[in-house]
Amino acid sequence: MSKHGDNDKLAIQGLIAGERTAFETVYRRHNGSMVRVASAILSNRASAEEIAQETWMAVLRKIGGFEGRSSLAGWIFTILTNKAKTRAKRDGRSVSLDTSVNDDSIDDAFDGRGRWKDMPEIWDEITPDRVVNGRQMLSHLSDAIEHLPPAQRAVLILRGQQELEAAEVCDILGLSEGNVRVLLHRARFSLRQTLDRIEREKEI
């Protein structure tokens, strides 16, 4: 069982008992990320919202049979991605995420001898405390996340935000552990580039 074990137990009991507050807590924790992951697979926000809603219905119907072999979140996201893939197939779209990372944004930041083209400097303006107060910064970050390639976005949300175990993310997205590691790093590196640009322009 994951580190979310105790949280999970309470949530599951609440869901089985049909308690509204338990549902609301679990819904708030996951729904935004569910829509985003489904969007990454379907490239369509409206379909993604439908899939998320169908997933919640399935979760409530099936929760009594949940055996806790994965975390609750892992189980929910497995249902979600299965539904999204079925929908993608029905719509005649490709169901596998494109995991190629040919465009090497990391190497582009270095010269031929492996040195920084632009030497990083400690950020003064962008610090977690400041930023959480200033919502505008986070909305820049939201835009940057929306613009990540779908596979990077899905991995970032599941690993970097929902904090699922790497092995769960591999199962849910059908990717190898190596792939998940590279995609996550690319995603974070490219968000760091975006934030650095904002810091240098001081447009916070």
Partner: peptide, 12 residues
């Protein structure tokens, strides 16, 4: 910066 980025992604 990478540490900060990871924290901000969580906050987002």
């Amino acid at each position: 910066q990478m540490r900060t980025t990871r924290q901000l992604v969580k906050a987002e």
